[in-house]
Amino acid sequence: MISFKNVSKQFPGGHSVLKNIDFTIAAGEMVFVTGHSGAGKSTLLKLIAAIERPTSGSISISGQNIAQLKPSTLPFLRRKIGFVFQDHKLLFDRSVFDNVLLPLQISGFDHKLVTGRVNAALDKVGLLKKSKAFPITLSGGERQRLCIARAVVHRPTILIADEPTGNLDAAYAKDIMDMFRSFHQVGVTILIATHDATLLEKNEHRILQLDQGQIAA
């Protein structure tokens, strides 16, 4: 599903974030990416959605080499992916409902047909009662869950989450992890970056440990 071959990423100025990264994630697999802050977790996730481009090496998603992707086909790659951003990237000028509606509008769904889907996504993360509220009135945990609802509403095949439990207390974090497990159970390929060790206790899934831009053995 996702395969990195010899991928390196340098930022302008010569700072090397990722060095010779090699891994493959099968369809339907759930994988954690761990490591200290600055180990390159976020960059690795951004490479998958082509938000950043690799300096060298190749990345393929469902057999498609994204280094060779034309700018005009890039949007269609991103529609296969649901991204839970570390900084949420919610739009504060519209309601909770309209925030979740956005990915469906972008994909060209008819407005009348999608109300049910938006409500279902909001229900799943427990925000259905707040669908008319504005994001500014939500707590940190609620914003995190809103971001998850937006990431899954268009039923992506890949779900990527960057520190989804950062700054949340343990109860909230457990809720959110349960949500990801339920997506995993219906066959979504999931990649979660975290530095939170408690998340990985009693964990049966694969872990990619990043250390100074390299995968630790």
Partner: peptide, 10 residues
């Protein structure tokens, strides 16, 4: 920016 991230075409 957000629209581009979610896969909006130009």
């Amino acid at each position: 920016e957000v629209s581009k991230l979610i896969g909006a075409t130009n």
